[in-house]
Structures are given as structure tokens and as C-alpha cells.
């Protein structure tokens, strides 16, 4: 029996008494690629932050690989929202990726840390850019740096908050392929505005709008979705009866 990468049980969260998530249940298996969609302010980012341990639920429990997010932080790879990022910060690609190895008490990088960072750089095809300052990078390249930084920590659960906003379509497909590949060895949860992105390798979609509804990507006639998304889709099954 395999341990799920993420379990939310009756999780509720409010910002200043304004409920954002109410009684959310979610189980994400260890090699699953899950897309989170939903309207702005619907709670997608909040859900990611709860899973990352950045926020504590008002009620309910969050378990990452069977432990609390703070106990399991070595298993969590976090890719923050692109928009809130200082583009002119003086740091090179390699330095930024290495920060993904940072843990609580350690002061020096060990050989293991450098190797893990190098692997993450190779996996995201950033080798030719590794000594460039991040201010030189395109949006897609910077996004790959943020993913590489998360991968450097060798996570079992990768959380991405809108990894494809601000990207052109090619860069977006690039990221999608990478995530599909990564989901062969870790659980990947991504927030996206972009319904087209959901069409890719995503196995399941969760629609977050204060409550959460999961949709398997199988068993749905593609036509309706294709019409809706204007995209070749092989997923999404709206089963809103799950939460009466």
C-alpha cells in the first residue's frame, strides 16, 4: 500500500473571517498530476499554501507523505507565483537553484547538495544558462529556474502556483511536458488559470471554489470540453454530486 503524497481532511480556512476554503477533502496519490482550476479568489493558491505549510488550516488536517507539512518539508517542492518575483535581484541561475537545498540548520553546501542542484539544472535544461543572472532570462526560463530550485530539494510532492501565467504557448507546453515527466516519480499539483493547460498530461482536475470538486480525466466525452476549451482534451469529468 502506498502512502498518498497529500491528504486534506475537512480542511477549512478563512482570511479575516472571510471563508476561502470550507470542508475540503482531497487525496493526491504519489505519482499523480493534479490540476487545480477555479475562479480568482476561489482558494487555489490558499490550498497550495496550506499543503506547503505556509498557512495553517483553521480546522481539519493536512498531511504530506503522512506527516504535517512542517515535519515533511524536505518532501515538498514549492514553486511560487511568478508574478510576485523580483526580476532584478542579483543572483545567478545556479545560485538560485542551490537555494532549493537550504534546510533549517545547515550553513554550508555539501557535495550531495551541489549534485542535487546540478541534477535539477540538467533536468530543466538550464545548463547553458546556469551562470547567467536571472534578470537576463525570459519568462519561460525563469519559470524553469523556479521549478529547478524546487526539484533541487528532491521532493515527493511538487506544488506549483500558476506556473504558466505570463508565458507564451511554447514555453507553456515546455513546462507542461516537464511536469508530466516529473509526475512519473513524484506527485505534482499545479494551479492554473489556463484551461488549455489542463488539457495536457493532467490526470485529474480539481475545481476549487471555496469547496472542492474533483474530476477524473477519464470517462468524459471530449466533445463538450473541446468546445468549451477550444483545445484537444482528454479529461475532465464533472461530477458535482460528490459534495452535496
Amino acid at each position: 500500500m502506498n502512502m498518498p503524497a497529500l491528504v486534506l481532511e475537512r480542511v477549512s480556512f478563512a482570511y479575516d473571517h472571510q471563508p476561502v476554503l470550507t470542508d475540503v477533502d482531497l487525496v493526491v496519490a504519489e505519482n499523480e498530476l493534479l490540476g487545480l482550476i477555479g475562479p480568482n479568489g476561489g482558494g487555489k493558491s490558499t490550498l497550495i499554501k496550506l499543503a506547503a505549510g505556509l498557512l495553517k488550516p483553521d480546522s481539519g488536517t493536512v498531511r504530506v507523505c503522512g506527516r504535517s507539512p512542517s515535519a515533511a518539508r524536505q518532501e515538498i517542492g514549492y514553486v511560487p507565483q511568478f508574478a510576485g518575483f523580483e526580476r532584478d535581484f542579483p543572483i545567478t541561475v545556479a545560485q538560485a537553484v542551490q537555494l532549493g537545498r537550504l534546510g533549517s540548520g545547515r550553513l554550508r553546501w555539501r557535495k550531495k547538495d551541489r549534485e542535487a542542484a546540478d541534477r535539477a539544472i540538467a533536468e530543466t535544461r538550464l545548463e547553458p544558462l546556469q551562470n547567467r543572472p536571472i534578470s537576463d532570462l525570459s519568462g519561460g526560463e525563469l519559470q524553469r529556474v523556479l521549478i529547478a530550485r524546487a526539484l533541487a530539494g528532491e521532493p515527493r510532492l511538487l506544488l506549483l502556483d500558476e506556473p504558466t501565467s505570463n508565458l507564451d504557448q511554447r514555453a507553456e507546453e515546455d513546462i507542461l511536458q516537464l511536469l508530466a515527466r516529473l509526475s512519473e516519480r513524484m506527485a505534482v499539483i499545479l494551479v492554473t488559470h489556463d484551461v488549455g493547460f489542463v488539457a495536457g498530461g493532467v490526470q485529474r482536475v480539481a475545481c476549487v471554489n471555496q469547496t472542492l470538486m474533483c474530476h477524473d480525466t477519464q470517462g468524459l466525452t471530449g466533445d463538450a470540453i473541446e468546445a468549451l476549451y477550444g483545445h484537444s482534451v482528454r479529461l475532465v469529468h464533472h461530477d458535482h454530486g460528490e459534495h452535496p
Partner: peptide, 8 residues
């Protein structure tokens, strides 16, 4: 925020 996730 990322540093916080890493336990810094």
C-alpha cells in the same frame, strides 16, 4: 516565502 517552505 520559498525560504519559509524550506524551514528557514
Amino acid at each position: 516565502e520559498f525560504a519559509r517552505v524550506r524551514g528557514v
